[in-house]
Design a protein around this nucleic acid. Sequence first.
DNA 1: ACACTAATTATAAAGATTATTATGTAATAA
DNA 2: TTATTACATAATAATCTTTATAATTAGTGT
Lengths: 145, 145
Amino acid sequence: MSEKRLQEAIVTLKDSGVRITPQRHAVLEFLLNSMTHPTADEIYKALEGKFPNMSVATVYNNLRVFKDIGLVRELTYGDASSRFDCNTTEHYHVICESCGKIVDFHYPSLDEVESLAEQVTGFDVSNHRMEVYGICSDCQTKNAH
Amino acid sequence: MSEKRLQEAIVTLKDSGVRITPQRHAVLEFLLNSMTHPTADEIYKALEGKFPNMSVATVYNNLRVFKDIGLVRELTYGDASSRFDCNTTEHYHVICESCGKIVDFHYPSLDEVESLAEQVTGFDVSNHRMEVYGICSDCQTKNAH
DNA sequence: ACACTAATTATAAAGATTATTATGTAATAA
DNA sequence: TTATTACATAATAATCTTTATAATTAGTGT
């Protein structure tokens, strides 16, 4: 299933004049197959075996390329490193304050918030982001002890 | 008007057993008087004249103290440093993607989002955050040239 | 004023990300 | 096919924000 998305992503890249290198392909594939939202370092570590010579900078470079083209989104949170999300359909995130897990959840887009903000502030609004914070069920049971 | 808030904040600090040092007082006062949401470095630079010997660590230490007590909130955004907000009443932020300016705006709290997320994901939800992104009116006129 | 404890300073260290530079590789044109 | 050009990579250094450490200084209650 994600095979199809991979092919589509590669077409998108090629149309943008981006070369498909082995490393680039691997980073993209890993991102598309991962249901979690990995950090750059997690991607780096995961591909270390297949590409022992790969540099961290390469991961960052490729993530930037994907981001510029719109294939992935960068999620930035407080004290930790950025996470990368290849699910470009509209959705929000629920984040566990205990273990850092990120779970997708769907909710009708908050368009009215955007238009209100536009009226009140005079901004030309382009998008918004929202996250819900809490404790995931795993950590709830763990903490019960 | 912010004089009153400053006094209240100092009382809150004392009640928590926190000493009021000159540096601490200055950081707090600067935060309460600033309508922008300064970064730790901006606070540091602003107080450099008055406290030539002050260390950056002191700013961070004090911000952490204020945060732990609930006097300020830490706002963390993408590629830049954290910003600190002493307005603890419920409100959201509109952020300029061009100059980084942050403007407060009020909107009824999205409680239903929280409860839906709770049902769908099994999380024990505690709070949420939302920001709207766009171009502020200043930058709109600038870019018109 | 004294003693106790916390706060400050200065510095080092950590961690994430970006910049640099030289080398390598893929695409294109002659 | 070869030369040329532009883009990618790797390795490393540098930067930037934030935290940790250790020694010194300074508030606060008695």
